[in-house]
Structures are given as structure tokens and as C-alpha cells.
């Protein structure tokens, strides 16, 4: 990755003050603590922000593509209207894996047939990323799939320096956010380069799959590799891997009248290609009737089918599915089994 030149630096104190100021105009979501969990959630004060990253259960895709979302409202007498909701939002402290996830989500929802519910939220959201200085967790493998650096998906990117952050500006929206809310000073210009040198040292020998670019081909050639059944036979078809994935975006749509049958709505909700009924049709046929087929489909979406479309691995290596899988199934291990690294 070519070095980015920061224009500004900001002290941590000024950054927190800026977020506080932004709270007047935006809902701010950041990494925060709730009971025994660390998660991305709406905060009321910048003091709630957790800076020391720990992997969260869900990715911040939930702010663009919520678990449940009403997309249509109607009445018994036939009035029908699209329901599109969005609030001015700041997503603060999003990490490179999830930023790459945003980029993929964006291409999926907006490249053709621009999804109005998704785009309304993107339009109103300022995304502020924070670069990762080190590998966050033993299950993370961002470095294997070329996702340890964010290639997009943010308006501003922060790089940790002594007493604060260097700021990379990616969009006009980001630059307007700085001028309205953040007190900054001019950067020397070499801050990001030194952050990246430090990061490279921390990541050490952890390098991308040797055959990263060739994964679609490898997966195509290995449709019937023994690994599918080895891993698939353990799969519980529980859908956990999909719920936690930053780049899974399948959904189901259902209609519901209110109990008085006078008003109704159409709701889309997260669905999971790993659960048994996902590919079943009305006549009863299920086109992916075993866990092995379903696992093959999901992993191929990440490294083959959709990788061709997005020109990058659609798995961003955040490791959430590995942590969530009780049966210990890992996309990384599957990729390695079919020769990603040999």
C-alpha cells in the first residue's frame, strides 16, 4: 500500500471534545462496554468510548443494514408507501476489517439497483476509522486476505501517534466534519508512514495467502475436495457465522398485519444461507439440502463467486465467525486445505 499523507493531527483530548460537540447533531456509535460485552453501540458521552480494540460479536454493518428493518407500510384500504429511515450518524473507531466490509456491502447494495434503505443511511453517516497497530486476536486473519489495511469504506481514518492521531481525509464529508467539529493542527506529513512501519513490524511474518489472487480459480477446481465434508459434517447449520459476518448481507422479507388488521408492514431481516430452509422453494425442493453444500456455498461466496465481482476477497479476516463457531469451522483453514498458501 502506498503511504498516505496526513493533513492534520489531533490530540486525544481534542478528538473526544470533537465527538462531544458532534453529539449535538449526530447519534454517535462507537466501541463501548455494556454489561459484560464490548460492542459497537450508540453512546451518550465520549467517555464511553473504548479505544483498546477487542473483537465484537456483531460487526458495525448493523448500522447500515439492521437486523430488522421495515421497508414498506400499508393500510387495509390500500395506501402503500416505502419506508426509508435514516438519522445523522457518526460511526467512530471502525477497524480496517470492518471498513473493507463496508466497502463490499456498499458495492453489493448500491452498485446496481441502489437499495434506498441502505443508501439513505450511508448518505447520513460519517465513518471515522482507526487503524490497527497490531493483530487484535488469535482468530483474526485479516493479514491473510489483504484486509489489515482499509482500502476504503471511511470518510476519515485515524492513525495512532504519541498523544493523539494523524488524520487521513478520504471524502469531502470527512473534511467538512473536521472543519465543523475537530480542533486539529497541521501534520508533518510523515506520521502515517511511521505508523505503517510500526504496524508492519508488529504484523511481522504474517503475510497474505500466497495464492490470494488465484483463490477463485482454486475454489472452482476444488468443488469436491474432501475438506467440504470434513468441515461440513461438523456444521450445526446454526447460522452464527452469518449473523456475525461483516460481509454477509442475505435477507428474508416478510409481511405482517398489526393485530387489528388495519395497518401492516413489510420487514426485511437478516437471513442465513447456512440454515436448512434457505434455498428451499415452494414445491418443497431444497437446492442446498446438506450442511456440506451450504458451507461450500458460503465459503465460495467469500473466496470465489463474489470475490470475482468485488475484485477482493469478500472475507475480510475479522475472525468473528471462527470465534462464533462452536464446531470450530474456519474459512482460513478451508482456504489453506485447498492450497491457498501452498
Amino acid at each position: 500500500m502506498s503511504a498516505q499523507t496526513p493533513e492534520f493531527v489531533i490530540t486525544k483530548k481534542d478528538l473526544l471534545q470533537g465527538l462531544d460537540k458532534a453529539l449535538a447533531d449526530y447519534q454517535v456509535a462507537a466501541l463501548t462496554k455494556k454489561d459484560d460485552r464490548v460492542l459497537y453501540d450508540i453512546i451518550k458521552s465520549p467517555t464511553e468510548v473504548v479505544f483498546d480494540y477487542q473483537p465484537t460479536v456483531l460487526s458495525p454493518k448493523k448500522f447500515f443494514f439492521p437486523q430488522d428493518e421495515t421497508i414498506l407500510e400499508y393500510t387495509a384500504d390500500g395506501k402503500i408507501s416505502a419506508k426509508i429511515e435514516a438519522k445523522p450518524t457518526v460511526l467512530f473507531g471502525i477497524r480496517p476489517c470492518d471498513l473493507n466490509g463496508f466497502k463490499i456491502l456498499h458495492e453489493a447494495f448500491a452498485d446496481d439497483h441502489g437499495d434506498p434503505n441502505y443508501l439513505a443511511k450511508v448518505e447520513q453517516t460519517v465513518v471515522i476509522g482507526i487503524d490497527c497497530e497490531k493483530i487484535c486476536d488469535k482468530d483474526a486473519f485479516c493479514f491473510k486476505v489483504g484486509s489489515q489495511d482499509a482500502t476504503g469504506g471511511f470518510d476519515l481514518m485515524l492513525y495512532e501517534i504519541a498523544d493523539g492521531y494523524a488524520i487521513e481525509i478520504a471524502t469531502d464529508k470527512g473534511s467538512q466534519f473536521i472543519s465543523k467539529y475537530l480542533t486539529t493542527s497541521k501534520a508533518n506529513g510523515d506520521e502515517i508512514t511511521s505508523c505503517q512501519a510500526k504496524k508492519a513490524a508488529n504484523f511481522g511474518q504474517e503475510k497474505p495467502f500466497k495464492n490470494l489472487a488465484k483463490l477463485p480459480e482454486l475454489f472452482e477446481q476444488n468443488k469436491h475436495h474432501a475438506v467440504w465434508d470434513q468441515e461440513g459434517s461438523r456444521c450445526l447449520s446454526c447460522g452464527s457465522c452469518i449473523m456475525v459476518c461483516p460481509t454477509c448481507y442475505c435477507f428474508d422479507v416478510g409481511d405482517e398485519w398489526q393485530l387489528n388488521l388495519k395497518k401492516g408492514e413489510r420487514v426485511r431481516k437478516w437471513d442465513a444461507c447456512m440454515v436448512t430452509p434457505f434455498a428451499a422453494v415452494g414445491s418443497g425442493e431444497n437446492f442446498r439440502h446438506t450442511a456440506t453444500y451450504r458451507l461450500h456455498h458460503r465459503i465460495n461466496r467469500k473466496f470465489n463467486f463474489l470475490m470475482k465481482k468485488h475484485n477482493q476477497a469478500v472475507c475480510v479476516g475479522c475472525g468473528r465467525c471462527v470465534r462464533a463457531c462452536l464446531a470450530d469451522i474456519s474459512p482460513k483453514r478451508i482456504a489453506e486445505a485447498i492450497g491457498a498458501d501452498s
Binding site: 414498506l72 408507501s81 416505502a82 466497502k103 448500491a110 441502489g114 437499495d115 434506498p116 450511508v122 476504503g152
Partner: peptide
């Protein structure tokens, strides 16, 4: 060059029958 979350065209009637 960074890939931006630039706005693509929204189809407000995508899900409106």
C-alpha cells in the same frame, strides 16, 4: 486512490410495488 463510499443512485421504488 482510496475507494470512497461515494453515493450511487438510489432507487426509491426498488421495494415499492
Amino acid at each position: 486512490m482510496r475507494t470512497k463510499l461515494n453515493l450511487r443512485e438510489s432507487d426509491p421504488k426498488l421495494y415499492l410495488p
